[in-house]
Nucleic acid binder design. Structure first.
Lengths: 342, 342
DNA sequence: ACACGGTGCTTTACCCGTAACGTAACGCAA
DNA sequence: TTGCGTTACGTTACGGGTAAAGCACCGTGT
């Protein structure tokens, strides 16, 4: 291996121009195909472009201020949660198809990491930012205000977004699930989720759920919030802890379907039949549900579409088109077979 | 909402300097804390930095050529496959902790998308690239050679990497699984996977598997490669197709655990008992396995660690430290309970 | 008295591509 | 021939930061 590759003998436009025997400006015009040169000149320049392997440096016009970058910073809590991976996929697909690049930032659900990522990414002059969640640190807000670039806050619907907003009403989705389960006759509920951050979307789902339950005369007997990613295993051992705690629950509401499936597996492992002995409800209508004999009772959310819509809003704004500042991507209840029937 | 935020009244160093009554250069020195100024000057400058909310523009020194960027381009096939999401998470964690930014590119398993992404991302002067897979288009190779920057090819172990390489021996992992299953007495095998790209890692696993099977006197009766993401549902309907095809198989090898679980679910759905009636083997030892009563027979791969190791190799190279050009991240067979016992 | 070194600052030049402007050469009509 | 437009270029300036060089001014030693 050549370890001294680092000697970046970068080919600049002036080098191409000199080699072709023309001025930088003429070469630049040829590169952009904007006309104002003869066919003979075009050939001379292009011959050198091919020979030298010239690739334009997009930083230069950016610095000169006559363009914006095509970077879009995207902050995502974590990728261990399949739901966020899908949102990111939707974002990157759409951004990419419009010639924009995704600059990723994983925040691990902390505002501090988000803040330091925002500071760094802003210093690279992104065209805009897509941020997951609606709460940001004081300093992050200052930075964002000062930067004055397009921002899409996703995931959560937000009555006063910084700029644009694409998401869904998490509280409402929790409320709808709670109401549905109460109507089925359940009274005593348990909850298993992750994270202690009261400001996040999952907490708002739990709030909505909790309200629906008490509105309907039921009780949220016990809730477990684990310090872990919202994936299968935490759902499994969270359920174990919940049931071991002695709480008498008829139905468990989970932060998402991955956790719900983990809980489902634990219940069956200890001999509980679902939904006869205990009900299980999740959130997200995630891919795993499609292969289960008993489809999980859940809330369907178009994750990929959410990401795409966010990217579209960003691209439209960057192209100077009219943009709806706020978009509710919606959700729908999936009855499933993991809770009793009416 | 202020829709006219776009008026980017960018605060530059000269503005800060002028406001503080010093030259750009002095302000620059204060910003970098490299000395050569009085305490009084430092205070004057910092007061203006705070007042104006100045954030340095990291593009400028980049253009001037006395620094490299802190962007690292990372190409990933898709995020619908949990395994790649984890690899990406590992990469971004490690890059981020060293002050580097991940610029994502989803290639959807196609060399054309990789090529166009490489071209675009190179024009933004990244510090290095991390690419999934070892095959690239002719033009991509030209571009990479010409750019002369650090490259880590991940996923697959590669006898002649472009630069650095972190991965595992996919062929061997397939071979080991095949040998294991043959030793258990299986003779007739089926395969369910995705993608028709013969150049990718999953194909190499299949080749290894196939070789082990024929070396051991068995037969790979039928194989299904679906045009889909390697997730639960394709595993489910791929298995349906396989079994409906009338092929007599005793054991099915899947591209990964997600597909294997989908297949598992299909088998149980139609009344087949696992492993009594049919054996199932996956790859990746993915999170879902941890909550199943019958752990999937699989190959354990430290995905997160693979991503971290790739990022570490990149960072070390960028810092000018000595780097091992190639690293085998390894794998290990997980016996599981979805195949018969010896 | 003058050389010398250090401190604290300013000035100049540069990176790369493009906008804006300048200009030489030519064609064509009055 | 003059006047004007067009074509096909070249020249200059710019943007944000930093390296390198320049330059006052001070204190100190001889």
């Amino acid at each position: 291996m050549d370890n001294n590759v680092s000697k970046t003998n970068k080919v600049s436009l002036s080098i191409v121009a000199e080699a072709a025997g023309v001025s930088k400006m003429t070469a630049s015009r040829v590169m952009r195909g904007e006309g104002g040169y003869s066919e003979k000149t075009r050939e001379k320049v292009m011959a050198q472009v091919d020979a030298l392997g010239y690739l334009p440096n997009r930083l230069a016009p950016l610095l000169a201020g006559d363009t914006t970058s095509t970077f879009v910073g995207v902050s995502i809590p974590d990728l261990g949660n399949e739901v966020f991976a899908q949102v990111l996929e939707g974002i990157d697909q759409k951004l990419g198809s419009h010639g924009y690049q995704t600059v990723l930032g994983l925040t691990q659900h902390t505002l501090e990491k988000e803040e330091s990522w925002i500071e760094t990414v802003l210093s690279w002059q992104p065209a805009g930012l897509i941020l997951t969640g609606r709460s940001h640190s004081r300093r992050a807000l200052d930075l964002l205000m000062n930067a004055g670039l397009p921002i899409v806050e996703i995931w959560d619907l937000n009555s006063s977004p910084l700029d644009m907003n694409v998401g869904l009403a998490h509280f409402d989705s929790g409320y709808e699930m709670g109401r549905y389960l109460v109507r089925l006759g359940y009274k005593a509920f348990g909850y298993v989720g992750t994270s202690h951050d009261t400001a996040n979307a999952a907490s708002r789902r739990l709030e909505g759920f909790s309200k629906a339950v008490s509105d309907g005369g039921g009780t949220l007997v016990r809730q477990f919030c684990l310090h872990d990613t919202a994936n299968f295993y935490p759902g499994f051992y969270g359920t174990e802890q919940l049931l071991a705690s002695g709480a008498k629950v008829e139905c468990i509401y989970f932060q998402n379907d991955s956790m719900a499936f983990g809980g489902f597996q634990y219940c069956e492992r200890i001999g509980l039949s679902i939904p006869r002995d205990i009900g299980i409800a999740g959130w997200g209508d995630m891919p795993i549900s499609s292969v289960l004999r008993k489809r999980l009772t859940s809330i369907h959310v178009p994750h990929l579409k959410l990401g795409q819509a966010a990217a579209e809003a960003m691209v439209s704004r960057l192209k100077g088109e009219a943009v709806i500042d706020s978009r509710d991507i919606g959700f729908s209840l999936v009855p499933g077979q993991t809770v009793r029937e009416l």
